[in-house]
Design a protein around this nucleic acid. Structure first.
Lengths: 155, 155
DNA sequence: GGCTTAATGTTATATTATAACGTCCGGTTC
DNA sequence: GAACCGGACGTTATAATATAACATTAAGCC
């Protein structure tokens, strides 16, 4: 899992994501309908999270519930993630693997990258556990600068 | 820093928070006006995050910008925190100390408690750093069950 | 083909947040 | 104290995000 370089072959990302989604839906007996697939494709247009209404516009003739229902489906099956800070959605590169909801958000290029780091999760569980708190879901959203944008800033 | 027991002396929490806010504003040369203080008090009515429109209603005769401006001020001076998952706000128990934005959110009683654990922050910085990413702001929101609610569930 | 359920369409509305501009108030200067 | 200045607040309108409720259509099953 790496930060997507600025000019990587993004069609490959999309193709892989769609193939993985097909496979995951087959495995789960879930129906990846036309609308759902189209929304997933739109989410994968970029590594930057996209909002529901931007998807709606890109879809063309559709009402909000159409998009939100597709998003709900994709979220439920782990094919996309929601970035709480941004009220926006980003594709999941590895559906099927347990996802921790850990993201690095570049404030320059907008790209979101998944971390899924066990040490982070363990550190949270430990700290919570010391207070008697049991964690059932974890959201980590770290804002900053990705390698490419950092280079660009001369830092 | 501990999880607030269900029937603690909450007036003490409020009094301490307001005193700390006064002090912090004095220190910063910021004006804790009547509206701002009232919003802060309302936020501190409970340890559960409260939404802007609930505050608005509690304030009585006021329009959204009034509340949002007060919230912006309180956020800017570290007197409250925003919980992204909930679009809601919670008091900061220790204004003036560097805050990491780490929270435990009890899904039963709704209480939010601040963590500010260095190990968590370090784990995130390490994992990000391995990908060449520099973190400038960190949001951690862990959902789960607090000690009291866990006891209540017989688990 | 008819039944059943899931998926989608459609309309309306709830919830969260901000833009834009006018007014007031507190402090400073003269 | 009057004139001025800037920050805080009032007010109206609207943007952005999300869901409720119910009608219609499509898919899978026997």
């Amino acid at each position: 899992m790496n930060f997507p370089p600025p000019h990587h072959d993004h069609h490959r990302c999309i193709a892989q994501a769609l193939a993985a989604a097909e496979e995951e839906c087959r495995r789960r007996g879930a129906r990846l309908t036309d609308i759902r697939r189209r929304v997933l494709e739109l989410v994968w247009r970029s590594h930057a999270p996209i909002g529901a209404y931007a998807l709606l516009e890109a879809l063309g003739k559709a009402a909000p519930p159409t998009v939100y229902r597709a998003l709900d489906f994709l979220l439920a099956h782990g094919l996309i993630h929601r970035i709480e800070k941004l009220n926006a959605f980003v594709g999941c590169a590895h559906p099927g693997h347990a996802q921790a909801g850990q993201f690095l958000l570049c404030r320059q290029c907008g790209a979101a990258t998944e971390l899924n780091d066990d040490d982070i999760e363990q550190a949270v569980r430990d700290a919570a556990g010391r207070m008697g708190f049991v964690v059932t879901a974890l959201t980590v959203e770290a804002e900053g600068l990705c390698p490419s944008c950092r280079a660009g800033e001369g830092g």
